[in-house]
Design a protein around this nucleic acid. Structure first.
Lengths: 191, 191
DNA sequence: CATAATTAGTGTAAAAATTACACTTTTTCT
DNA sequence: AGAAAAAGTGTAATTTTTACACTAATTATG
């Protein structure tokens, strides 16, 4: 029988890349770290996984504690495992990304973060850990996702205009879109 | 400072879904388990990650020990973390998938497996652990991959005919393709 | 409530990409 | 030499994509 102790036992965490949309800008929710390492840096909200949780449960828990939201869109993206990515020990992290409506809730005071803020993805500075890389990966996934299925309902309020939806798509794809062709794509039946 | 011991420390494994193509059939390389759990079952080749490795290094090591091949296409697909997926303890596994040329080498006698065999993906039975689910996920990824970029050079011998390539694509996509249109897709310039 | 700002609504032509479809020649293998 | 496998070749119909500009209606604001 295998002796598990002779192999790597690592701590593992989940990190959430939470996208929102507001003021015509695609945003991501960051927390300000209040402890070492990377004290004072902005970073992705994440936490250790508990023994009785699977990864998705942990990612949902982090999201809930930070935003009070449940039942939101959540998707595993990639697992990051560089040996030195956490200076206090071997920590492997699984990145999830999530899409939520900014206007829908107020950020919670939580154990995860004393300070949480929305940042435009276009103006993000140096984040803690390897979180810039994780964010890049998730942004890339979002770009791909938006091409393969509609993504408006997750990021916009219950009622939104077509123009808002177009602005969202333009923010995600970092490009300009033609209004009439955009309509055609969403309502191909009456064109 | 965080006390890591109060959180879950899990063992990590990688599992490789290694696709090959032979006799007009898409195949996957399986090993026969020689120990508990799932003694005697076919399963994906995988192993524990060592403390000085990141995940990709571990996946490459497993692939090398089993096949003797290096520098092959390898891609992380998904991380599986169900609490009870390994009955001897908490083990999280990261699935990688890989594409190799079957004809190119002989399977190695290795520490990983006493018995390794190619199986047609269309006739796979019950595998050990949650490996059927992992295989499904990787097959799905392969289908997507083949639509977004050419995949022939990884799976076919150095020289291959267009017809062979078409048969490969038909096996992956589980559909029939038109020969002339298939040519057009690969050589759009001289049509 | 008057005005301004935002959003809805509408058509077409050109270009590009996709699909369906069958037979002959050349090469390779035995 | 013969058989089997692969290469090679064209076109018409359909569908999809793209580029492009103005008016009417609604909503928000002072």
């Amino acid at each position: 029988m295998i002796n598990f102790d002779s192999y790597l036992k690592a701590s593992f965490t989940v990190d959430n890349v939470i996208f929102g949309f507001d003021e015509g800008d695609l945003k991501v929710l960051l927390i300000k770290r209040a402890e070492e390492p990377y004290f004072g840096y902005w970073a992705l909200p994440g936490y250790f996984v508990y023994p009785n949780e699977d990864l998705e449960t942990a990612a949902k828990r982090v999201l809930y504690e930070l935003t009070g939201l449940r039942n939101v869109y959540l998707e595993q993206v990639h697992t990051f495992s560089a040996i030195d990515r956490h200076e206090f020990g071997r920590v492997i992290t699984v990145a999830y990304f999530s899409l939520i409506k900014i206007s829908n809730y107020a950020l919670q005071v939580s154990s995860i973060a004393s300070q949480a803020q929305w940042h435009s993805v276009s103006t993000i500075g140096r984040l803690g850990f390897d979180h810039n890389e994780i964010l890049r990966g998730c942004f890339h996934r979002l770009k791909w996702l938006v091409r393969s299925r509609p993504v408006g309902f997750e990021l916009l309020p219950p009622k939104f205009t077509l123009t808002e939806l177009q602005h969202l798509y333009e923010a995600i794809l970092e490009t300009e879109l033609d209004k009439r062709n955009f309509r055609k794509r969403f309502f191909p039946w009456d064109c």
